Amino acid sequence: MLHFRSIEQALDQFQSVQEAETLVNMAKAQPLSDGGLRTSQLLDEALRHDPHQHDAQLLRNKLHQMFVPRWHFPMLADTARNRAYAEAIAAKVKPGDIVLDIGCGAGLTAMLAARAGAKHVYACEQQPLIAEAAERVIAENGLSDRITVLRKWSHTIEIGVDMPEPADVVISEIVDTVLLGEGALATLTHAMGALAKPGARAVPEHGILKAQLVESDKLLNLWRPAQAEGFDLSAFHKFAQVAQITPNDFATCGLRTLGPKADLFTFDFTRPNTRPARTTAELVCDEPGSVHAVFVSFEMQLAPGIVLTNDVTSDGHWGRTAYLMDQPLDGVPGGALTVTAQHDSAQLSLSVNTPHMH
């Protein structure tokens, strides 16, 4: 009897392996025009048949990396950011409110709005894999009756079709290291004008971009190593004008500020617009040192008294941006550099007007 059972088990295992291979081949042939949703389902099914299927494991991991940006995970683990949003949403959302949550990700901010007393939250997420996961997270937390995930881009939401009425509160966390790179201004300009009631509240309320002079040998050596094995590498430095600093690199580079922050641009997220802008700012040096870069950071007010920043004193999941000097300058107390900053509502550029301290 044991002999027959082992044969049956072996046959079942063989059939499971064959079925898994068939499903993997189907997944490989599947177009990704649906954001990877059907491919993911096929790979999940393949791994249920054969948890050790090599190609299924590799393809699923590649699919997730392709469609689910890796910054989602440190963002969700950023307790200071989560606490700030929780407090701001609790302050802004009133019982009975209709809330629009733009770019809901895993669903955290939508659930915070429901917990704060929202009558209903409409959470939009255009990436199908992420939207499906958000629906599961929301269901597992018992909030499916008060949160609807809209699997679409906010620009395509229709009042009376997707939402019964405009929102009382618009929540978003769609900024990058300089507030602009995820299309926040264009998205919020549309949302506050077309999807929200007049005078609607917003989280965040406004943001300010700031710049200051910094010194960091480690940052310079990371992005512009002078030589390697005795060979001069300076002709390669032109490719490293802007340093996109990861949180880990930021922690090890030890940036030292040489002067105070100067305001570049202020963005009102309750009444946003997409007009380009240009400004000139004087960055003062009040400590001696080598000016290696102009460091740009943001301060974002979520609600009165609740501010998030990615400046040199902050921690958290955000990266940082630094515009490297062509050549390090000697910083002297009382000296200053003049810079020109420009944005087109989606991207930021910055250049040094006077490449010496004056």
Rank of each mutant, 00 (worst) to 15 (best):
L150G: 14
L150C: 06
L150I: 15
R151M: 14
W153I: 13
S154E: 05
S154Y: 03
S154W: 08
T156C: 07
I157S: 05
I157W: 15
I159Y: 11
I159E: 01
I159L: 14
G160P: 01
G160Y: 08
V161W: 08
V161E: 07
D162L: 14
D162R: 05
M163T: 11
P164E: 12
P164Q: 12
E165H: 12
E165A: 15
E165D: 09
P166A: 01
P166I: 03
P166C: 06
A167Y: 03
A167I: 00
A167H: 04
V169I: 08
V169R: 11
V169W: 07
V169H: 11
S172N: 02
S172D: 02
E173C: 07
E173L: 09
E173W: 15
E173G: 06
V175M: 15
V175Y: 05
T177D: 08
T177K: 09
V178H: 03
V178L: 04
V178Q: 00
L179Q: 01
G181M: 05
G181H: 02
E182M: 06
E182L: 07
L185F: 10
A186M: 02
A186L: 06
A186R: 04
T187S: 12
T187H: 05
L188N: 01
T189A: 07
T189M: 04
H190A: 08
A191M: 05
A191F: 06
G193P: 01
A194E: 09
A194K: 14
A194T: 10
A196T: 05
K197D: 00
P198Q: 02
P198T: 02
G199W: 10
G199H: 06
G199I: 09
A200Y: 08
A202H: 06
V203G: 03
P204I: 03
G207L: 07
G207P: 03
G207W: 14
L209D: 00
L209E: 01
K210S: 05
A211S: 02
Q212L: 13
Q212I: 01
V214R: 04
V214C: 07
V214Q: 06
E215G: 07
S216E: 05
D217V: 07
K218L: 15
K218W: 10
L220K: 02
L222M: 12
L222E: 13
L222P: 00
W223P: 00
R224L: 01
A226R: 13
Q227W: 12
Q227S: 14
A228W: 14
A228S: 11
G230W: 10
F231N: 08
F231Q: 12
L233F: 15
A235F: 11
A235L: 13
F236N: 05
F236G: 04
H237V: 09
H237R: 09
H237I: 06
K238F: 13
